[in-house]
Amino acid sequence: MLFITNRTPQESAESEQGRTISFDCNNTSVSQNIYFCERLGVHKYKEMMKDKFFKYLKELEDHTQLLLYIHGFNNNMEPDIFRNAAKLQDLLNQALQKSSKNEPASVLVVPVIWPCDDNPALALIDDYWDDQDAADCSGPGFARLLGKFDTWRKSPEQQEIPCFRRINILAHSMGNRVLKNALKFWADKYSSGQMPALFRNTFLVAADIPNEALEKGEDGRYIVDSSRNVVVYYANDDLAMPASKIANIKYMTLSRRMGMTGPETLNVLPEKVKEVDCDDFNNEFDMKGHSYFLDKDDGTPSPMIRHMADAIASGRVKPNKRSYRLRRT
């Protein structure tokens, strides 16, 4: 599995093609560098460098789309992130095979990994604050990732045979904060406040950001600008969201979280922003009702899987409604 990270390696900070690279899960300092890597096995990784990484993705079969997966807080590479990414890829590909009829369709999930803790429950609040800091500090680094990709695809060599790979993105929980910060930093510093349409679909799942974040004048407005479709999945009984609101009192922030209410005022946002109410099933997939985008213990996929697969396959969110209640399958 390919992945991108700004975790600090245990080896030299200087990149080297093909070298073995490792990461200490207890070191949550944010690296100034971005590492393009391949996972060969549990705790076995090698560095690829950006040109080889991008070339590999460009040369995938035409029917394969990319899904960048930005994980939430209190997740670590092993076992959480890679396990969830592999499961997400399998579930989506199964759904795509069913929905695409006779046309081939597949997705490759690429985790985007930022440094966060996986402390025990008693340290969860401190862990949350630490992860917030890491999410904020990761914004500039992943903005550089966008810059590297933009420079690569605009190079004369790549323009001879342009890359038309469709890219989707799924941000879960505090991963939405990482996404918001990265796009804002890139637009402000590298693009004169403008944001090109980079993504086919952006899926904001249990988003731990203020519920007004996508509106004009807010930091998250670039999420809307960057994507053809923006789908906000939320659940009123997501138990992680009230805890997040309480934790944010430290920063004098009392705004309700998007992952609990959906966008604050949907009708002020562009038509391409949709909200999907997942109240009917979120607590069946996770005790906190927070990680409801994968499957149950018995392998039953979340209704979100089919919903996302349809959007990936067609480029359209179904049904064509601004606000929709997703029910058990």
Results as ranks from 00 to 15, higher is better:
Asn320Ile: 14
Met287Asp: 05
Gly259Gln: 08
Gly193Ala: 02
Asn201Trp: 08
Trp129Asn: 03
Ala143Tyr: 02
Ala240Glu: 14
Thr253Glu: 09
Val42Arg: 12
Tyr35Ala: 15
Leu239Pro: 01
Pro104Val: 14
Phe203Asn: 12
Met48Gln: 04
Gln17Met: 13
Ser291Met: 14
Asn283Met: 04
Glu11Gly: 13
Pro242Tyr: 02
Leu294Thr: 13
Asp279Leu: 08
Gly220Phe: 01
Thr261Phe: 15
Gly18Leu: 08
Met308Tyr: 11
Ile312Asp: 00
Ser100Ala: 09
Asp133Phe: 06
Glu78Gln: 00
Gln65Asn: 13
Pro120Cys: 03
Ile34Thr: 13
Arg7Gly: 06
Gly141Phe: 08
Gly262Arg: 08
Tyr251Lys: 11
Gly217Thr: 05
Arg322Gln: 10
Met241Pro: 04
Thr329Ser: 05
Thr64Trp: 07
Ile249Met: 07
Lys296Asn: 07
Ala182His: 13
Cys163Ala: 08
Ile70Phe: 05
Val178Gly: 10
Trp129Thr: 00
Asn267Met: 09
Gly299Glu: 15
Met258Thr: 14
Glu16Ala: 05
Thr253Asp: 09
Lys184Ile: 01
Arg256Ala: 01
Thr300Gly: 12
Arg316Leu: 09
Ser155Lys: 09
Gly299Gln: 14
Thr28Ser: 11
Val178Asp: 05
Tyr324Ala: 04
Leu2Tyr: 02
Gly141Gln: 12
Pro120Val: 04
Val276Leu: 11
Arg228Gln: 13
Arg221Gly: 00
Tyr234Glu: 03
Lys250Val: 10
Asp90Gly: 06
Leu122Trp: 13
Ala213Asp: 04
Asn168Lys: 12
Thr265Phe: 09
Arg39Ile: 10
Leu266Ile: 15
Ala311Lys: 08
Thr151His: 14
Glu61Met: 06
Phe149Cys: 10
Ile125Leu: 13
Gly217Ile: 05
Asp297Lys: 07
Val109Met: 02
Asp131Glu: 01
Arg228Val: 14
Phe285Lys: 14
Ser173Asp: 07
Lys44Ile: 03
Asn119Cys: 01
Pro115Glu: 05
Glu215Phe: 03
Val30Arg: 07
Asn267Ile: 06
Val107Leu: 07
Ile4Ser: 03
Pro210Ile: 00
Met258Phe: 07
Ala143Asp: 00
Arg328Gln: 08
Cys116Val: 10
Tyr45Arg: 02
Asn283Pro: 05
Asp298Trp: 14
Ala206Ile: 04
Ile34Gln: 12
Asn181Tyr: 09
Ile34Gly: 11
Val317Asp: 11
Ser31Val: 11
Leu91Ile: 02
Ile161Pro: 05
Cys116Arg: 02
His307Tyr: 14
Lys148Pro: 00
Lys321Met: 09
Ile223Thr: 08
Ser138Met: 05
Thr28Cys: 11
Pro120Thr: 02
Tyr56Cys: 00
Val224Phe: 12
Asp298Lys: 10
Ala187Met: 04
Pro9Ser: 07
Gly262Ser: 09
Asp279Cys: 11
Gln17Asp: 15
Asp286Thr: 10
Met195Val: 11
Trp129Val: 06
Ile249Arg: 00
Val110Thr: 13
